[in-house]
Amino acid sequence: MKTFYGTALPNPLMLGTAQYPSPAILEQAFRQSGAGVATVSLRREAGAGQTFWQMIRDLNVLVLPNTAGCHTVKEAVTTAHMAREVFDTKWIKLELIGHTDSLQPDVFQLVEAARILTEDGFEVFPYTTDDLIVGERLLSAGCQVLMPWGAPIGSGRGLNNEYALRAMRSEFPDVPLVIDAGIGLPSHAAHAMELGFDAVLLNTAVARAGDPAVMAKAMMQAIAAGQLAHQADPIEARDMAEPSTPVIGKAFLS
């Protein structure tokens, strides 16, 4: 099993902590799903930060801080340093947003920031596109994990470009790959795992569901099913039917 900078995840679900109706429901979503990693962020302290931090600690999960909302290398690098101090982890989910509407990563700045942070001792989880060359550049910059988008953040569209994601899986067989963003339904998450991805990172699909805790559980079950299916070596799709019931020995009745 692949590790994430030497750490084996308890399961392949990384769950965001934003947008839940209440802290209690957030906690239920984690308990119901058993997600092993929580993504978190940093914002200006206005009084709520310490309570939130205590709750995350009580969940007893691995913490993956992000650089959400950063648009420049400098901003992202500074945010990463602040996150390392506050959360006491070398892990950083590196987000460098390049486009306001699609929240598409600015992959040029992403590679540059990844190199700087790796040299500073960070373990970088880059939120990237499904571009193979960008993936190669990120690995050359020192990343040991890649997190391609399934679809734009919060869009719930699932895997927009299965072909590209398949190619990425095939190109980087030994690199832990995480589908980050775009998941809307458990079937999307299962699909990602069936393709052989190593984990799924999602937030909105659970937090904005009518019942986040139940949806979190559904996501985990789908992820587990998809992972098992991948291990079980699924059949190839074909264009024509092929009878599953034996033809030989059929009674002659017409």
Binding site: A18, T39, S41, R44, E45
Partner: peptide, 10 residues
Amino acid sequence: VEVVAPMQGG
């Protein structure tokens, strides 16, 4: 001066 603290994130 910026002072930041843990916050919810995705």
